[in-house]
């Protein structure tokens, strides 16, 4: 079984977000980058497939050379090899086209991505990859079992869960539930050493359009300071919510 895990390289969850160059760029200075948390759940689930079902795991990222430490970390966690498509990942269509092209070449049984990247929150790439390949797509996946040419998947739906059986190859976009937080692996020394010599192939991008362009960034308006209400006069809170905030 060959598994391709898509890894998005994103700011750490504690990052303060700033913009630069007249608010036309995201300011990367002082930011620590990590494996997108949703992708880490998917990667860990893939490692289980490797350990229990002999899967071969390739991790892939569309990004410039600055994303290589993130790919090395995925290798240290246990992926067998890595591919980096050498291009700025500025548009979901472009990124999906790159991943789809590699996927066609590699003949993967399963492609695992994340529900969304925590930077741009697009929720686009895995679904586009699936459609470009013409294979089943399951978003917000919280359960996955692979058995021969089929997978049983559980996805989150509005207000519940849905379990279904799909045939492989397929693309899933995962989140917590695929594995639990306590299952995530911190790379050990041996893993880190091995990762240094595992293959990391750098590939030139295929020809593809970009369908969107980020032209301007903006920070949320800062909040006015909090209005405190006396706990012994809670009717006042109800009054404020009704008359001032007009939300009840």
């Amino acid at each position: 079984m060959k598994v391709l895990v898509c890894i998005s390289h994103v700011p750490d969850t504690t990052s303060k977000i700033n913009f630069t160059n007249n608010n036309t760029e995201f300011d990367k200075s002082g930011i620590t980058f990590i494996i997108n948390p949703y992708d880490e759940f998917g990667l860990t689930r893939a490692i289980w497939l490797q350990e229990k079902q002999g899967a071969h795991i390739t991790v892939i990222n569309v990004g410039t050379s600055e994303t290589e430490p993130t790919l090395r970390k995925a290798l240290a966690i246990g992926a067998n090899d890595a591919i980096r498509i050498d291009a700025e990942p500025t548009d979901a269509w472009f990124v999906a086209s790159q991943i789809a092209a590699q996927a066609k070449e590699g003949g993967y049984d399963l492609i695992i991505g994340g529900r969304e990247s925590i930077d741009y929150n697009g929720s686009q790439v895995p679904g586009m990859v699936a459609a470009m390949l013409g294979v089943p797509f399951v978003n917000a996946c919280v359960g996955l079992e692979v058995d021969g040419g089929k997978a049983t998947v559980i996805r989150e739906i509005d207000g519940g869960k849905e379990k279904s059986i799909i045939s492989l190859p397929a693309v899933i976009a995962g989140q917590k539930g695929l594995v639990e937080e306590s299952d995530l692996r911190i790379p050990n020394m041996r893993g880190i050493m091995q990762a240094r010599t595992k293959p990391l192939k750098v590939v030139a991008p295929v020809e593809s359009e970009r369908k969107t362009k980020a032209v301007l960034f903006e920070k949320p308006a800062s909040k006015a300071s909090v209005k405190l209400v006396d706990p012994d006069n809670i009717e006042e809170l109800v009054r404020l919510l009704h008359e001032e905030a007009k939300v009840i």
Binding site: I17, F19, K211, T212, A214, L216, K219
Partner: peptide
């Protein structure tokens, strides 16, 4: 933590 203006191509 931010907003982005996207222009369609």
């Amino acid at each position: 933590k931010g907003f982005v203006y996207y222009e369609s191509q």
